[in-house]
Design a protein around this nucleic acid. Structure first.
Lengths: 134, 134
DNA sequence: TAAAAAATAATAATCATTATAAAAAATGAG
DNA sequence: CTCATTTTTTATAATGATTATTATTTTTTA
């Protein structure tokens, strides 16, 4: 995953690259931790001191609109973001808040002939290994 | 669905009945529209003028904790609530915001031997019939 | 190179939700 | 039944994620 790959990924989704967009997309591609806006902002602040939290919000909205990233609403407090847009489910630990990828069983895409489905999300919640032990 | 059924439903989940709790549970059982806190509060305000929005929040938290109601995070803006706790999925129209019940295909409950799954949610998003026509 | 457009940043505002504390209602012992 | 204790509800204020607004900077283009 080189910087060039990030440019390609953005271009594939019709997004013009800027320093900030590349940095945010790159962070999401390298850190598959389903970060929040604040995690992204805090992580990039050191390297990009002028970065604004607003730019993180704006960029993520753009990335989601263009289908380069998906937003997870598994956490009722704040949105999480995932650069992996292939079919998979998510597990969130109710104790530590960590979100894990889970292979998704294939679902019939036909919800109803009347509804036009654009997006499918499968969420599991419970306790992760670490938190079960404590 | 009589008032008595509401009392039974609450008792089955270890919840002591109060006028407010019965009213909120009753509303959820009769109105399968996946309402928000505000919809519930507004709908009951006429009949219960002293009802506080806080009581709606508190009661819903209790109902969810006791498993009498499930919270939906399909909408990133605000929580929606569903008295139907049987296995089913949800479809949300991105245009009008309405949330519909969708029969759920059975999912293997085994996410990972390491995770203890307490809850499963399946969300679809897209366009409903009405909004497709416009 | 200058004007126009796009993107970013700083600040303030919004709004769902939570925290806190006071008031009211229910419970229970004597 | 009555007073004290606990529980529930209510009112108010605070929090915090997100959005709106507007100024500034950067990029594009003529």
């Amino acid at each position: 995953m080189s910087k060039q790959d990030v440019y390609t990924h953005l271009a594939d989704h019709g997004i013009k690259p800027s320093m900030q967009r590349v940095a945010i997309m790159d962070f999401l591609l390298r850190n598959r931790i389903h970060p929040t806006v604040d995690v992204i902002y805090s992580s990039l602040s050191a390297q990009y001191p002028t970065l604004s939290r607003m730019t993180v919000y704006n960029t993520l909205r753009l990335l989601v609109e263009q289908g380069a990233v998906q937003m997870l609403t598994i956490d009722d407090k704040q949105a999480h973001y995932d650069a992996d847009i292939t079919l998979h489910a998510h597990f969130r630990c109710n104790c530590c808040g960590a979100i894990y990828d889970v292979p998704a069983q294939l679902l019939s895409p036909v919800v109803s002939p009347h509804f036009e489905v654009h997006e499918t999300q499968i969420y599991y919640r419970g306790l992760c290994t670490k938190c079960k032990q404590n």
